[in-house]
Design a protein around this nucleic acid. Sequence first.
DNA 1: TTATGTTATAACTGTTATAGTTACAACAAG
DNA 2: CTTGTTGTAACTATAACAGTTATAACATAA
Lengths: 137, 137
Amino acid sequence: MKQISTRFSMAVHILSLISVNPNVTGDFIAGSVNTNPVVIRRIMGMLKKVGLVDVRPGVGGASLLKPPEEITLLDVYRAVNVIEQNQLFRVHEDPNVKCLVGRNIESVLQSELKEAQAAMEQRLAQTTLSQLTSRFN
Amino acid sequence: MKQISTRFSMAVHILSLISVNPNVTGDFIAGSVNTNPVVIRRIMGMLKKVGLVDVRPGVGGASLLKPPEEITLLDVYRAVNVIEQNQLFRVHEDPNVKCLVGRNIESVLQSELKEAQAAMEQRLAQTTLSQLTSRFN
DNA sequence: TTATGTTATAACTGTTATAGTTACAACAAG
DNA sequence: CTTGTTGTAACTATAACAGTTATAACATAA
């Protein structure tokens, strides 16, 4: 069973740490996430690319470029490219167009799957980073 | 980017075909889906296991064990084990419990991800096989 | 200027699920 | 007993992932 990459959960972890302490280094984050620093840097690079964080090369540390109340789980999910638009479900390719079902299944099914994916993503959009960190204790 | 397996879309294709014509053989289905017959038989085995279809060994063909109005996309999705309960998102393991974030992230995030997955699955539950086949033309 | 501690990135590895394939056994009916 | 099915094991190639090593680039303090 394939699952959505841990890049997403790690990215949320990273942003939570930066939110709580803007001075944490990649190595410290790696220690908290419990993985290799390169894995953290790769994800930080993606967060930087979409303008969620500013990273300080050389000196170390990073800061959020948006208030945590305005960063949603959907923003993070999109940032780390775990799932592209309308591609949560993979649909088999080239069904036989000579068959009634083969010629219709793709478009009919895709529209339903698109709705299902949208429902999931809209739920992610309802949760902000600050809501998460406020529940830490 | 990992996606949900085509087993799901193939299973919907298979059930649609059986619904339209209960006498189709696995080889015919394979021709419509455009894949190897063994792939079809494997999925048929899963559909049979959960009681969605009855397959006729030797003679060939299959039939639905529930009316197509009562088979939802969620039923099919569950049948083919593409995603287990509460496991759409993989979460990184063993974060550092000595860190405030590391010790809280897992439970706080999991509850949100669970909600997101549920939203997606509830949307799948709203669509029936008969709704799909009625849109074929 | 140099040493130190960072970030950035390329390249490689082992793991895993997938989708397809070949081969063959089991089965039902003419 | 022949034919056309279904059932299943075993193997393959592919692709994404997560981790690793190595090295370059960078910023600051001594």
